[in-house]
Design a protein around this nucleic acid. Structure first.
Length: 301
DNA sequence: CTAGGGGTAAAT
DNA sequence: ATTTACCCCTAG
């Protein structure tokens, strides 16, 4: 009968990004396959995966494992022998699961063949930023201070265990600020703790879409020179349709990101100049955003 | 909560 | 038409 009361029950479809897959793989390597809830609550991954449920992780892992091998538990039989045809002559089953690839002492990445080239798209600037964030999270996690850790403690931890650039303090400050603004960290009385992955429990597919929108409007140059003015205009146009509160939040975020980008540009200035361009673009957008906000508020009075 | 079986529907 | 992502259900 019409037992399927949920007429619109189909999933809106959110493709897994390479970062999410990487986080999942890293989580499995760290906690073991099957500890989906543990992985989800791990501060190192929850910021990337908090849009996914434990079941999502399980399903995705199932899909990935199945795909790497050829055919697993699912979908065997029925369409079984549709002659190979489309597959080029060279083999694909070569890398099953757990082809571990340690890059630069940072995130471990296994590639089940489907996402081979997606991992290559990391640019130099992107990487240092992601790494610093990871380091900060690790520092706070391992320091285990119940009330949170202050900047000095975090800096000491990182300097102690890793190499630190000359102007590290400044970079760290900017990054902490940005992480606080983006709600990945919570700052209370000069101490930082990792944000509580939000009470997502169930539902809230709208929040998912929301944060996805935020991501796509973020300044992301794949490997082009830098963000262009037209990009800024586009973002501002987007802001115009927001409510005042949303616009304020977006502007604050933009400012924080600009500061972090500037600090990163200083670090990378020795051997990379495009980071500086990126920082300038971010700053330009931040200024424009603030101005737009000011105009908006002025118009209301 | 997890493992899986099974299904729907969106992308490709 | 296949793949992919999500959902539901049930037994451990």
């Amino acid at each position: 009968m019409e037992v399927s009361a949920q007429s619109s029950m189909g999933a809106p479809k959110q493709k897994w990004r390479a970062e999410e897959e990487a986080a999942l793989k890293a989580g499995v390597l760290k906690h073991g396959a099957g500890k989906w809830r543990t992985i989800l609550k791990d501060p190192e991954f929850c910021n990337v995966l908090h849009l996914r449920s434990n079941v999502d992780l399980k399903d995705k892992w199932r899909n990935m494992s199945v795909m790497a091998n050829g055919w697993g538990s699912r979908d065997r039989g029925r369409t079984a022998m549709k002659r190979s045809h489309q597959v080029p002559k060279h083999e694909e089953n070569a890398l099953a699961l757990a082809v571990v690839d340690v890059l630069d002492g940072d995130i471990v990445d296994t590639k089940p063949l489907a996402v081979a080239n997606e991992t290559l798209r990391m640019t130099s600037n992107n990487r240092t930023a992601a790494r610093l964030e990871n380091l900060i999270m690790e520092a706070i996690t391992n320091l285990k201070e119940p009330t949170g850790s202050n900047k000095t403690a975090i800096a000491m931890y990182i300097e102690d265990q890793y190499w630190s650039p000359p102007n590290f303090k400044r970079i760290l400050s900017a990054k902490l600020k940005a992480l606080t603004a983006s709600r990945k960290l919570i700052k209370v009385k000069r101490k930082y703790r990792i944000a509580p992955c939000f009470p997502e429990e169930r539902g809230s597919r709208m929040l998912l879409l929301e944060s996805r929108l935020k991501e796509s409007s973020k300044v992301e140059k794949d490997d082009l020179k830098s963000t262009t003015k037209s990009q800024i205009d586009a973002d501002l146009a987007k802001m115009r349709s927001m409510t005042a509160q949303e616009a304020a939040a977006a502007a604050a975020l933009a400012v924080a990101e600009a500061e972090a980008a500037i600090a990163e540009a200083e670090e990378a200035a020795r051997d990379a100049e495009n980071a500086e361009a990126d920082a300038e673009a971010a700053q330009a957008f931040a200024e424009a955003a603030m101005m737009a906000l000011k105009n908006r508020n002025a118009a209301k009075l």
